Simulated assay, not measured.
Amino acid sequence: METSRRRFISGRKGKSSAKYMRRRFKKLKEEMKEICREQQSIREGQRQVAAKFKAIEEECEQLRKETHQIIRQSAKTQILLILMLNILKAREQGDFSKATNLTQLLREIIARDNVSQSTDP
């Protein structure tokens, strides 16, 4: 009698143990699916961050180019203004030879700039 009772109890334990294992396995599968979804979300977030970072880098490069162009143009403008000022001073002092040379230099610089601007994209 004791043996049959043990079988009955162990049989119940076996069923409840199997049931527990199935529930646990099902729960683990759900957790794994959730982890997979989270990982996909993280990967998508990383792709978005990488795309934004690349766009920012491209924008920075464009700003560097524009800044360099502005600096060059400012330097050219300064040179032209200095030449014009020197032409005026030479004329005021009656040094027309110097004024003529500076005027010719100014014309050459402007012509060269016009040629380079017409060939630039």
Rank of each mutant, 00 (worst) to 15 (best):
R43S: 03
A51W: 10
I79Y: 05
Q40S: 04
M1V: 05
K15D: 11
D95G: 01
M1P: 02
L63P: 00
A50S: 06
R91L: 11
R22W: 09
C60T: 04
L85M: 08
E61K: 07
F53E: 14
Q69N: 12
R12V: 07
S16Q: 13
V49W: 08
Q117S: 11
N114C: 03
S116Y: 03
Q78A: 13
Q69Y: 12
K65M: 06
E2D: 15
E59L: 14
R43L: 08
F25M: 13
E44P: 07
R7L: 10
A99Q: 09
R47N: 08
N86P: 02
M32C: 07
I110T: 10
E30T: 07
A90P: 03
G94R: 06
K26F: 06
L85R: 09
A50E: 07
E31P: 00
R12K: 10
M32S: 05
K76S: 07
L88F: 12
I109T: 01
Q62L: 02
E92N: 12
Q73I: 04
E61M: 06
D95K: 06
R91F: 01
S116P: 01
M21A: 15
S97F: 09
Q73L: 15
E58G: 02
R91V: 04
R5M: 10
Q62P: 00
E57M: 08
C60L: 13
Q48K: 15
V115M: 03
K15I: 11
Q69L: 14
R64D: 13
D113F: 05
T100F: 04
L28N: 03
S41D: 01
R23D: 15
S116K: 04
E59P: 04
L28V: 01
I71H: 12
F8N: 03
R5I: 08
K13H: 14
K27T: 09
I35Y: 11
E59I: 05
Q46M: 09
R22F: 06
R47V: 02
R72Y: 13
G11K: 01
M84G: 01
R91G: 05
F96T: 05
R64N: 06
R23Q: 15
L105R: 07
R5L: 11
V115S: 00
S116I: 06
